[in-house]
Design a protein around this nucleic acid. Structure first.
Lengths: 339, 339
DNA sequence: CTGTTAGCGCCTTCAG
DNA sequence: CTGAAGGCGCTAACAG
């Protein structure tokens, strides 16, 4: 069987409690004994059982991370950076991928996190009911999307202003007929990003005295494929847009593909702006609104650690990360209209 | 405090052991009592403590997943599908991101998995020493890269043949001067993929009686940026290649970008083939060798579950997944050389 | 079918 | 500075 604390104690000629103290660097152990114990433990390849330690102390030293879809660039990036911060602080990461509605429902019903984690980092925006379930865990909660939320510490960006940057850029180039690829579905997952970005889009159109045309507001499901289909739909309208704002780079890339398939050129025929500054946006020369993705994950993780370390449970807080427009080659003035 | 099994037992007027049996669906509990207990447990919002259960039973119901870099498309995709399979089977996923050499070293030294997991799924190829450490955990081991390995059940592809498909395609188009972007670094992480793919490349050159030119074999570090730099280096050689085989789509996309920056056209000036069939390969029209990424993750997870369920520890095994060449728009015959 | 009895391995008082 | 004792919450024999 695996070596236990008792084995180490016996081998070192001390009591188990002394081994525990020594290995945790707690005071009350002579330097001599401490090094001796460390040596013996290493020799024996001893690792404390997390289960037993958790049971006895109540600390699990693990953080639950809830993500909607790890395969998506944004989430992978956030997870990656968050994990790094967390593991450096000695915490393990328990990953829950709750992309599908079914998985999500099951997760929040069974709440497998109960008694299993010291804190939770969520990459998805919980509904009110879900937030309630999360709060009932009685541990610090951290969020990487959306805005301030009672009981949660959240890190995010100003989606609305980001969209404004993108659309204003198009307006400034002289575009008047500007489409948008986002999601019209009524925020199925209580996700505010699409509506916020739409609000920014509408705001700029309003400022520019451009009447919004609902036929130019299409659904791209936040996927590459969806973006392609959405752009195809836009091109099929009576009067296609001369520029398109895609709410995510992935949709923007789908849009670029649709343009290629239609033998249209970007930006000569249609300008495209994305959102996120995806790793590959540079590769395809996509103008986009950049947000610090990895930094958001790291920041959220760090804020969670702060709460974990705090003697008093500190609730809430909102950190907004900066965004900026990155100009590349996918945008240009509209081509002069045939008079 | 949280509600314990004792609370449920008292409230239901039975013994804790009966509650345990009932909730686990074990035989020896009357239907009547079982439903009664289920009701009470639900009312009280009872969830068993994983720590206590693990300590008592020895089963942790969690699987450790070791990944080199979750942000990379391939790994994100594998992780995503593996998590789905695992969690559907009731297992939690403990994620360890050990991308950097430092993190990797720390991980294998401290082996935080000991006494924590029922099985391990590794997305990185362990060195002999690392494999030893993993085996010492005494739990089923599963791998998603490389070939057969004692003590591991592995899922993979024939990298060598994949590379052959790609390069042979270029040869068949009439290319004779074919570059490769891979990694020349001596497999720092004991990762066989680069050398296997190189072997395939060399093999086809040999078949076609083309003398390999070491100057055309450049390092792209398996990243987009690296691919771009590698292609730039290739273009700077005395006699640049007319076609390039990139060992990953991410490097291929970097190469495409380099071509664009040099005002060269693909495939007119230079043909490019990638490897992986990245989600965005279609978007950029990249010809590539497709491998079933998500399926590999799911398969590896399923094989791990099989071992977990088996009464006898079954070791080893190797499952090879199919690959295929996907023709898109990044390859064409070389342009006739100026005579 | 159900209750009782021991631990699982560790941490944390409390003594010394 | 160190050891002894109790208990964390649950499961797994063993009795009835």
């Amino acid at each position: 069987m695996a070596v236990s604390i008792g084995d180490v104690a016996t081998a070192a000629g001390v009591a188990p409690s002394t081994v525990s103290r020594a290995l945790h660097g707690r005071p009350g152990v002579s330097e001599e004994v401490r090094t001796q114990i460390a040596r013996v433990a290493a020799d024996l390849g001893y690792t404390a059982s997390r289960s037993a330690a958790s049971l006895a102390s109540g600390r699990t030293w693990t953080v639950g991370v809830i993500a909607p879809y790890v395969g998506r660039w944004f989430f992978g990036e956030v997870l990656d950076s968050a994990e790094e911060v967390l593991s450096a602080a000695g915490f393990d990461v328990l990953l829950y991928n709750v992309g599908s509605p079914a998985a999500r429902k099951r997760f929040f019903e069974r709440m497998p996190l109960r008694k299993r984690v010291d804190g939770v980092l969520s990459l998805l925006l919980p509904t009110e009911a879900e937030a309630l379930a999360l709060r009932s865990l009685g541990v610090p909660l951290s969020l990487v999307v959306g805005g301030p939320r009672p009981g949660f510490t959240t890190v995010g960006i100003d989606d609305r202003r980001g969209a404004e940057l993108a659309v204003r850029h198009l307006v400034n180039l002289g575009h008047r007929r500007i489409g948008m690829i986002g999601t019209t579905a009524a925020a199925p997952l209580n996700w505010t990003t699409p509506s916020e970005r739409r609000a920014g889009y509408l705001q700029v159109l309003h400022e520019a005295r451009i009447a919004p045309d609902p036929r130019l507001d299409v659904d791209g499901r936040y996927t590459v494929k969806g973006g392609e289909q959405a752009m195809t739909a836009l091109l099929a309208t009576r009067q296609p847009p001369t520029a398109v704002f895609a709410q995510s780079d992935e949709m923007a890339m789908g849009a670029l593909r649709a343009l290629r398939l239609h033998r249209l050129r970007c930006p000569e025929d249609v300008s495209v702006v994305g959102f996120d500054d995806h790793e590959l946006a540079e590769v395809v020369g996509l103008t986009t609104v950049a947000q610090p993705v990895a930094k958001q994950g790291a920041a959220a993780a760090r804020l969670l650690l702060d709460q974990l370390a705090a003697p008093e449970p500190t609730a809430g807080g909102y950190v907004q990360m900066p965004i900026s427009l990155v100009l590349r080659e996918s945008t240009a003035p509209p081509r002069p209209q045939p008079a």
